[in-house]
Design a protein around this nucleic acid. Structure first.
Length: 481
RNA sequence: GCACCGUUCGUCUAGAGGUUAGGACACCGCUCUUUCACAGCGGUAACACGGGUUCGAGUCCCGUACGGUGUACCA
């Protein structure tokens, strides 16, 4: 049985990169009929943000990523919040001390800083120096016990075997080998008693029977420590898969400075969740087909780890926009109308009967990226108070006698019957223009401007048809008067 | 600095020794459209570099360069 987990820390909103990691876990689990687990990694109390857990779960749910086990749904492997598993980590950490795989260290932050400064000055890699710092080995058993007895602040560190290489297989990157001498004696239990990520994730992944650890590439360098921990405990390590990072245009780790990066930002901007999921799924993975649009179930059917790309992927906002527009064009207009209704009401528009709104959407959606664009793009269809025309345009239109004559003739001939028939509409427009000695091009454009106060929009005939003869006439009258 | 990972059009990618190196976004044309868009058609544009291995290398090996990540009592 495949069991995977997405393990965010509650330090803020859900990052788009985290969404993708969660999505890959979700797709992998569903593809294999396995279990997808949400685990909260809140072992750093200083970075905890109130409400972040709920916020992240909401973003995930919005995107359609759901969990079979987690703090919000329960499960047989709980609790799913690490701070509620506090005692567990101490127990396992001590087990390692007893078996000789970990040890006590008493160094202060200042002493550690000094050590690093020394090492950098000497041109060597900053790494805990087990033989010169204040720890169980340098202090001796007696002194260690004495310090512990008087409750001196201390941490538990992993005793990394210096001689052997650590090797593991990554499903995406292949075999990875790191020399033991390169690996730091990582702190396992902090002086506040909380575990570090490294201890907690290994203990929990084992206890929760996680089979595949699918996480971001930034974890690759610390994976050897985790492998060492599994070995020290005598546990079988899960299969690792480190997915590539999502990048800024300058190829650094995706961050705020280059645009929106939080899932809620994308939602607020008007992206459809299925479009965002579709896009993000294809950012670093693809099923090798000549198509781009995939529904969630289609992603599930196709998702495999061996098709995850190895290099980081620059996040292309332009392509995301294109994809959102694709979804906008494909969705059911009645449903879209329902979704648009609240903002139409908020904007105070008068014409917002659902079937009418659906027809407006049908007419205009080919021209916009977001559903809410239609609110402003089609304002002349929803309301009868038109956007102000700029002075120069107004003046030149008003000053054109031939145009006024043509518009008047058009106005007089207009009826819903005429609008119901494309040929009849065209005939009327043509007759009106010609009678005033106007070329069609000199008539149709101004007609659009006068009726909609905009120079771009959908085809004029269906637009006027949607408006109805009455509303068209009153706008023409307003101009002519 | 050191460790690890990576490198195919501007971007996302296909490619698992023999391809005119394919698709998508973006960009540029043309067609359609009495507007803008959509759509259709067409175009510009890539195997980082150097050595091997091989009859043959984008594909395999080794270097180099460049980039990223990591290097915390953060995850």
């Amino acid at each position: 049985m495949v069991r995977v987990r997405f393990a965010p820390s509650p330090t803020g909103f859900l990052h788009i990169g985290s969404l993708r990691t969660a999505l890959y876990n979700f797709l992998f689990a569903r593809h294999h009929g396995g279990v997808c687990i949400l685990r909260i990694e809140d072992t750093d109390r200083t970075r905890f943000v109130e409400g972040a857990i709920e916020e992240q779960i909401n973003s995930l749910a919005w995107a359609g990523v759901t969990f079979d086990e987690g703090p919000h749904v329960g499960g047989n492997y709980g609790p799913y919040v690490q701070s509620e598993r506090f005692d567990l980590y101490r127990t396992y950490g001590m087990q390692l001390v007893e078996s000789g795989h970990a040890y006590y260290a008493f160094d202060t932050a200042e002493e550690l800083d000094a050590m690093r400064v020394r090492q950098q000055a000497a041109g060597i890699a900053p790494k805990y120096d087990r033989s010169s710092m204040r720890n169980q080995y340098t202090l001796g058993e007696q002194e260690t016990q004495r310090l512990l007895a008087e409750a001196a602040p201390h941490v538990i560190r992993l005793k990394v075997p210096l001689t052997a290489d650590v090797r593991f297989h990554d499903e995406i990157r292949g075999d990875v080998v790191v020399a033991g001498r390169e690996i730091d004696d990582q702190i396992l239990l902090k002086s506040d008693g909380f575990p570090t990520y490294h201890l907690a994730n290994v203990v929990d992944d084992h206890l929760m029977e996680i089979t595949h650890v699918i996480r971001a590439e930034e974890w690759l360098p610390s994976t050897p420590k985790h492998v060492l921990l599994y070995e020290a405990f005598g546990w079988k390590a899960p299969t690792f898969a480190h997915v590539p990072l999502m990048l800024n245009p300058d190829r650094t780790k995706m961050s705020k400075r280059h645009g929106d990066v939080m899932v809620r930002d994308f939602a607020a901007k008007g992206y459809f969740p299925d479009a965002l999921v579709n896009f993000v799924a294809l950012c670093g993975w693809n099923p090798a087909e000549d198509r781009e649009i995939y529904a969630m179930q289609e992603l599930i059917d196709r998702f495999t780890l061996d098709r995850v790309h190895r290099a980081g992927a620059v996040f292309d906002y332009k392509k995301l926009e294109w994809m959102n527009a694709e979804y906008l064009r494909a969705k059911d207009c009645a449903a879209l109308a329902n979704a648009l209704l609240p903002s139409l009401e908020a904007a105070g528009y008068t014409h917002r009967e659902p079937t009418y709104v659906a027809r407006v959407i049908e007419l205009l959606r080919e021209r916009v990226t977001f559903l809410h664009d239609i609110t402003t793009f089609g304002d002349y269809l929803f309301g009868d108070t038109l956007a102000a025309l700029d002075q120069a345009t107004e003046a030149s239109l008003q000053g054109d006698a031939a145009l006024r004559a043509a518009l008047a003739a058009f106005r007089d001939g207009l009826s819903d019957d005429i609008l119901a028939d494309a040929d009849a509409f065209k005939g009327l427009a043509k007759a009106s223009a010609e009678a005033a000695g106007l070329a069609m091009g000199k008539f149709m454009k101004p007609l659009r401007v006068v009726v909609t106060h905009r120079d771009v929009g959908a085809d004029l005939h269906p637009t006027l048809q949607l408006l109805g003869a009455e509303r068209c006439k009153s706008r023409l009258d307003a101009f002519l008067s």
